[in-house]
Design a protein around this nucleic acid. Structure first.
Lengths: 332, 332
DNA sequence: CACATTTTTGCAACCGGTTGCAAAATGCGT
DNA sequence: ACGCATTTTGCAACCGGTTGCAAAAATGTG
């Protein structure tokens, strides 16, 4: 069905190499030759088979885009940015859905079978070892939204979740809350653990502020709502740092339904600054995560690694900032 | 770097064909041979190069997953279902982001360069001609969430948007509203056009009910909010059928902010039944679109086409149903 | 115009697999 | 043990490209 190099060569009356060369830039071809070949190619509707050429060049321009976050709306934006960013650089995202996968082995094998040039792991919940499995298989890896580390085994691009925890704690203290809580995401997620650590460490410096903590079962509306309903049952804190915006919105709904009001009765601060957080009927105070920069930087790093696979692993952390909206009481 | 067939063959002391055969099922290999080969393969950590084999077999197991809906949360679920469904069948989604692309040509060429076995166009806004461009290039294609047609040029799986429009109209009439409106999505989208057609045609049978219509600029919260604010400025209808749930939620926020209440002052009915629609602080009455079935059926159809590329184009329409929540007044 | 230098071109081998075909090995019946 | 049918195996060509090398053509120099 498809037109091949050979057919174009025959039609143009030249060698196969000549055709190949007109389609690889940097190769030596005379103008006359190029015109002849391009004419024949156009007439036949030829375009080179990327996979066949990958066999000899060793590059497929395929990038594995691996994630397990298919339920957090913020990741739709992440996918949007990644796919467009990769496309713009002539790279093709091969999407791998890791939901329910705990073992990297299968995906590693599969992505190697397809000779991907690199892998982007886009997940805030997968352990660092997951990304490392790809590196050990000899594939350039960038872990986006991964856990920051001072001695990274693979490239990591993201935010400092510990610092975010601290920032949230500082903000609640500054607002004059005297009993605060963290309602974390799933306890197994690295992002949850780090935010928790930061939150608690900051509050250790404020012994006069009472702290409580609990964890929701998932980064989801329902989990946030359920957990907040449970918390409201006996002596809740005055304000909560929620694991992320989706959880916050669930919590908000629980608060509303309990006849309480936010921020009058209970304050909330989220994390991510997803689009919905600014919707007028939500209006969530939250910590902004610079998604666009993280994605852009991840792609840059990936491109750099394609040139130099031995590049030394690097951690790139982007600062977050608080976006004040309507779910915390005014400064004390 | 990667281990090749040849190395395994040498190590096992057999021919290259023998190795190839142990990794292609249905091939004739003795048990003794298979064991020898598998041992050598395991020792070397060999796994076959899917792209090299595609050269001779003509199948890559790559499926282009093409969409331009990267801003509607419902599509995160669509991507989740597609990627998992394809993976489960040993197929690999190559994601193509068509945002801002109006011409199918580039994507067609790119997907042919990668020899995809098939293409799924997942979009409710792309015109039928887009999917047809892939078919014309000789690639099996399924248009999911596409426009239903009695004489389809390509396989279409989705819902009957005209009927959804009628259904919404019937519901509003049954509830006793005497002035109703449709606040459609972007006018250029086929789904908008069809829903509009259905809505108006049903109301033509009810001359005593006053109808008005308008269109939002996008399927987004902001567009819905803006449009509703505009509508509220002078004599709005008593109830609106909104182009989709995201628009509805935007409209809801506009209504709240205007000091009006839903459903007491203005009724709303959406379309999609996205997860958020059931959140307690939204609680949107809407038309449920059976996404899971659409995706499953699309994948089935795709798999069937891989076996028989000449399969006659087919339209598969799944019924929608109204999910009653809290944004319409009780039945008259 | 002859000669040296540079550019362009084609040949042939190769990338990592698959597969038709014929030869070798095995199984079966007696 | 034999002949015959059936499996199993290896050879070699092929899939659709790329690329090192040397020959051919074009260009420059005196």
């Amino acid at each position: 069905m498809a037109v091949t190099l050979k057919e174009v060569a025959e039609r143009a009356g030249v060698s196969r190499s000549a055709v190949s060369r007109t389609f690889t830039d940097g190769a030596s071809v005379s103008d006359k030759m190029r015109r002849k070949v391009e004419k024949a190619a156009k007439e036949l509707g030829y375009s080179p088979n990327a996979l066949a050429s990958s066999l000899t060049t060793g590059r497929t321009k395929l990038i594995g885009l691996v994630s397990n976050n298919f339920h957090n709306p913020i990741f739709l934006e992440v996918f949007d940015l990644f796919t467009r960013g990769l496309q713009d650089r002539g790279l093709r995202p091969l999407l791998v859905n890791l939901t329910d996968e705990t073992d990297p082995e299968n995906s590693v094998r599969m992505l190697r079978q397809y000779s991907v040039d690199g892998v982007v792991v886009a997940s805030s919940t997968l352990p660092p070892g997951f990304a490392k499995a790809f590196r050990d298989a000899g594939v350039p890896v960038v872990h986006s939204f991964g856990r920051a580390s001072s001695a990274p085994q693979v490239h990591v691009v993201g935010i400092d979740n510990v610092e975010c925890g601290r920032m949230a704690a500082r903000e609640l203290v500054a607002r004059g809350y005297e009993h605060v809580g963290i309602m974390g995401g799933p306890e197994a997620a690295t992002s949850t653990q780090d935010r928790f650590t930061g939150f608690m460490s900051e509050l250790a410096a404020h012994p006069n502020v009472k702290v409580s903590h609990s964890f929701a079962e998932a980064y989801s509306f329902d989990a946030g709502r359920r957990e907040m309903l449970r918390l409201l049952e006996n002596s809740p804190a005055q304000a909560y740092f929620c694991g992320d915006d989706v959880l916050s919105i669930g919590a908000l709904s629980a608060i509303d339904d309990s006849g309480l009001s936010c921020p009058d009765d209970i304050g909330l601060i989220g994390l991510n600054d997803m689009e919905m957080a600014q919707w007028e009927n939500i209006n969530l105070t939250t910590i902004h995560q610079p998604i666009q920069q993280i994605v852009t930087s991840s792609i840059e790093l990936m491109v750099a690694m394609l040139d130099d696979p031995e590049r030394y692993p690097e951690t790139r952390i982007f600062p977050c900032s608080i976006v004040e909206r309507g779910t915390l009481k005014a400064e004390a």
